[in-house]
């Protein structure tokens, strides 16, 4: 049991009733109903995933232990040589550092901005639809439009931002020359695209928070900010975990923004903003044409994401379960029920 609120002892719908009632055919049927239904409900996902997800995964694993070029196809079995090659490649490590750095610049501000926007949208607004849909527009507009705009903002010599900086007497920022600056620029593009999206996810969760909790808090004399931290945040804990984990996974797979950041799309001459997924792409489709090594990169990245995801989960879990009062209250509730 991982991501769900684990300390809640789920009373389950079936268990208590099963013992108490009279036996009979319908009862037995009901028992099977209770036992099998959960599996039945999750089966569409797993069946389809087995076909469309597991096959590529297995294929990738198979490819990764062979000499395998994109067009030449399968070569000799070489064990873990591809993994060793990749781990010995300095650009792989550079790409990992870039990925983590861009991830830090994107995910953390993103979650904070998104939750703030969601809190704003959760107010009792006039024409709420308008506001809610408005924030989602960056997600909707085709990347070509967005990249065109950001290209004009972040161009080194004739970009809007540097022009403004020069006008007010400051030095230009080398968006494509300075490593950190390039990470900030890419993270900005990522944040821009996803902040409204994540805000709406938070909003949906906030809307499900029982309003009487707020009423009680108001009676207790809690202010807005206090309400937010002592009611909203603990109540939407599972959603916070969700957003943190999905944006971690997404953040470690940043691809499009890097491809669009300059004309070559491979992270610049120093590979200063090449992410690991772009490295993977370059390994398979670029000059190396080694599908074998690219598959090894894919598996390494996969493992890394799982590890970071787990760490993330544990940390988020700790932070959000440290939220005050609410948790114990819930616990006593559910305890009373079962």
């Amino acid at each position: 049991m991982a991501v769900l609120t684990p300390q809640r002892s789920a009373p389950g719908s079936g268990a208590p009733q099963r013992e108490s009632r009279r036996l009979g055919f319908s009862q037995r049927l009901g028992r099977w109903d209770v036992k099998l239904s959960p599996y039945l409900y999750i089966s569409p996902f797993f069946i389809l995933f087995a076909i469309t997800g597991l096959f590529p995964l297995g294929y990738t694993a198979f490819v990764s232990v062979h000499e395998w070029s994109l067009l030449g196809g399968q070569g000799d079995f070489i064990g873990l040589q591809n993994f060793a090659d990749v781990l010995a490649h300095p650009t792989f490590w550079k790409s990992l550092v870039n990925t983590l750095s861009i991830f830090v610049f994107s995910s953390i501000p993103q979650v904070i901005i998104a939750i703030t926007i969601a809190a704003l949208l959760d107010q009792n607004l006039r024409s709420a639809t308008f506001w809610r849909m408005g924030v989602l527009i960056p997600y909707v507009v085709a990347p070509v439009a967005v990249s065109l705009i950001f290209g004009r903002l972040f161009a080194d010599q004739y970009g809007l931002i540097n022009s403004v900086l020069n006008t007010i007497g400051l030095d230009s920022i080398a968006w494509h020359g300075d490593r950190i600056a390039s990470h900030v620029a890419i993270a900005t593009m990522v944040n821009y695209r996803w902040m409204g999206y994540n805000a709406l996810i938070f909003l949906a969760a906030m809307q499900a928070v029982p309003r009487d909790l707020y009423e009680a808090a108001v009676i207790d004399g809690a202010g807005r900010v206090r309400q937010f931290f002592s009611i909203t945040v603990p109540q939407i804990r599972a959603t916070i975990i969700f957003v943190v984990i999905t944006s971690t996974i997404g953040g470690l797979q940043i691809f499009d923004e890097v491809r669009l950041f300059d004309a070559t799309g491979l992270g610049g001459p120093d590979r200063n903003w090449m992410t690991t997924v772009v490295f993977l792409y370059d390994t398979a489709w670029g000059n190396q044409h080694s599908l074998g090594r690219a598959s090894a990169v894919a598996w390494l990245l996969f493992l890394l994401i799982v590890v970071i995801g787990l760490v993330n989960f544990l940390v988020t879990q700790r932070i959000s379960s440290a939220g005050p009062t609410k948790k114990s209250k819930r616990k006593s509730n559910t305890g009373g029920n079962s």
Partner: peptide
């Protein structure tokens, strides 16, 4: 959740 961590770029050829 782990399935989300699979880089999509490489799934293209098997798919």
């Amino acid at each position: 959740i782990a399935t989300m961590a699979v880089p999509t770029q490489l799934g293209v050829i098997p798919m």
